[in-house]
Design a protein around this nucleic acid. Structure first.
Length: 553
RNA sequence: GGCGCAUUGGUGUAGUUGGUUAACACGCUGCCCUCUCAAGGCAGAGAUCACGGGUUCGAGUCCCGUAUGCGCUACCA
């Protein structure tokens, strides 16, 4: 065992003692039962959909228990930190309403970035060395890699344990001499001897879990040749979640296998273990098998996908909550946004993330949005992600408002939009700048109605047009127009005797539809006319009746 | 290889002290409505509850085994 004075020389002489940290990070003054959760992403690129999934659950637990939810950036692997991911994160946290309740300026439990907590980890690493629960390891990465190969070849368990743990019992003299030769070292946990072979613990979601105990001497503090001497996840988790007074550790199920080490670490540090809730990862259907939603392969794994395509956050969150706990899937949007989640009700199998289902939910969500809310949400999205539309909309605000209002009248319910990115194709027809004009009667879109008839219909429609406010009265114009040109005035009549008519009412209405919208499919024509206004209706239809000059060959 | 977790119609789930025809949503098919597309209404197809044993009068539900999938087995998280 190394002498205390010697251990001290490995660290800053001014390094605080554990009791100093523990008194500056007291438990929060919260009611009994209040839950403190944290969301702890690594800034290694974009924010994963699974992150929003987890964070949303954590925030729910905190909110409904009058607790606290915070975000801690896990940047202990400096090599993997990707510049710009903080900004990506900030945008996503805001969009999905999972921003941290706490930050460096409003809370005393920070800092909230692990790279800024270096001294805290050092204190506890020193403490473990002093108590002989840790030791210096001089093995190089190359040696370690070779060792793993040997273990694989010998078909024994890989890891740093037993006789493989070469530095575990180095004499103090040996340690000193290596330090004098400037050999870099890591600090490893001395996993306790004489432990039971198996451990049992309770998971808040899964209940009892039994696992083989840990015998591996995991690294606590990374190599001394690094600029910042940062901890591994295992060490940081135990130290941070204790000092930051977390009461429920919500994390992915990939951590279940690590619980035994974590339990040993809590014990060695004299900390009380924190209850765990391991949630199943979001999955993706890939051919015949399912797999984890992957950052590399699936663009829906990056939350930027939802933000940029314009899926409303409320719809995505509703879907995600329903995936975690199907009781939420049956609720209305308001209920699911305001109901408390129960961990024991969460599913234990990884749910498949299904974009088709999300779209269906999102369509419903947008359809339910009140006019003003829909308009505002669209404007915000367009400003950032479709600048052209973002410029057009403010110039046509009354029209935009009318579109949403008309689709939201009693008895009218359209679910055209799953995301704001679809606004252009669904409603672009109303805007001069986005309208695909059809002023050529021989345009193939009019088929099977021939060009001469198209002109006749357009002329007949325009000449007698009345901008009726009543739906039936308005459409009656199309019926009489059809009758006047030998078309059946109702679809039923045409169906019965197709041979006695020039065509069906739908041929006529489609000709007018294409003139008005440039599209073969649109909302009902009455609505289109209402939104367009009388002048624009006439202008568009008359474009077809102009001289032959407009007819291209 | 070792260890852990999981496995209910195409998809997500409900079914949590074992007890009648396994429920809901999405998707799919058909019909109705209808000026198109949606929406809406109605109807329908689709699950031997992964497989094999066992306990029991009785098992999706409990036990054992097998298979498959996922994960851990890093100075990544």
């Amino acid at each position: 065992m190394l002498a205390a004075e010697f251990i001290n020389t490995l660290f800053d002489a001014e390094l605080p003692e554990p009791s100093d940290w523990e008194s500056s990070y007291p438990p929060r003054d919260l009611l009994p039962g209040a839950i403190v959760t944290r969301f702890a992403p690594s800034p290694t690129g974009f924010l994963h959909t699974g992150g929003v999934y987890t964070a949303n659950l954590g925030k729910n637990l905190a909110v409904h228990s009058a607790g606290s939810y915070f975000i801690r950036i896990e940047d202990t692997d400096q090599a993997r930190v990707v510049p710009g991911s903080r900004e990506q994160f900030a945008r996503a946290f805001k969009y999905f309403d999972i921003e941290s309740d706490e930050n460096d300026s409003n809370s005393k439990w920070g800092p909230y970035e692990q790279s800024k907590r270096e001294r805290i980890y050092h204190t506890y690493a020193r403490e473990l060395l002093r108590r002989d629960h840790a030791y210096l390891c001089f093995c190089t990465r190359e040696e370690l890699a070779r060792m793993t190969e040997e273990q694989n070849a010998a078909k024994v368990q890989t890891g740093y344990y037993g006789s493989w743990a070469r530095c575990r019992n180095l004499s103090p003299a040996e340690v000193m001499s290596r330090l004098e030769r400037d050999q870099p070292y890591t600090i490893r946990f001395r996993s306790p001897e004489g432990q039971p072979e198996r451990v049992e613990f309770v998971d808040l979601i899964r209940g009892r879990i039994e696992h083989q105990n840990n015998t591996n001497d995991v690294v606590l503090l990374k190599s001394s040749d690094q600029l910042l001497r940062l901890p591994t996840y295992h060490f940081a988790h135990v130290v941070d979640d204790t000092l930051m007074r977390v009461t429920v550790v919500l994390r992915g199920e990939e951590w279940i296998s690590s619980v035994p080490v974590h339990l040993q670490l809590f014990n060695a540090l004299g900390f009380k273990p924190i209850p765990y809730a391991h949630i199943a990862p979001l999955m993706k259907f890939d051919g015949a098998s399912r797999r984890k939603l992957s950052k590399r392969k699936d663009n829906e794994a990056d939350v930027a996908f939802y933000i940029e395509s314009g899926y409303p956050a409320g719809a995505v969150l509703h879907y995600l909550r329903g995936l975690a706990n199907s009781r939420f899937a049956e609720m209305t949007f308001e209920e699911s946004a305001s109901s408390a989640l129960s961990l024991s009700e969460c599913g234990v199998a990884g749910p498949i993330f299904d974009l088709v289902k999300l779209e269906s939910i999102s369509r419903e969500f947008i359809a339910q949005l009140p006019t003003e809310a829909a308009l505002e949400s669209l404007l915000t999205w367009a400003r950032d992600y479709d600048p052209e539309l973002g410029a057009i909309l403010p110039r046509n605000l009354p029209l935009a408002r009318r579109i949403f209002a008309n689709e939201r009248q009693p008895g009218v319910q359209r679910k055209d939009l799953a995301k704001w990115g679809e606004f252009r194709t669904a409603y672009g027809l109303y805007f001069q700048e986005l309208f695909p004009p059809a002023s050529d009667p021989s345009d193939p879109r009019f088929a099977p109605v021939d060009p001469d008839m198209v002109v006749k219909l357009a002329k007949g429609f325009a000449d007698s047009y009345r901008h009726e406010e009543d739906k039936e009265a308005w459409f009656e114009q199309i019926r009489s127009l059809a009758a006047a040109h030998g078309f059946a005035p109702t679809a039923g009549q045409y169906k019965k005797n197709p041979e006695s008519f020039a065509g069906s009412i739908s041929h006529v209405s489609n000709a007018i539809r294409i003139a008005l919208t440039g599209l073969k499919q649109s909302p009902e024509l009455f609505l289109v006319a209402q939104n367009l206004g009388e002048d624009e209706v006439l202008r568009r239809v008359r474009a077809l009746t102009r001289s032959d000059a407009s007819r291209s060959v």
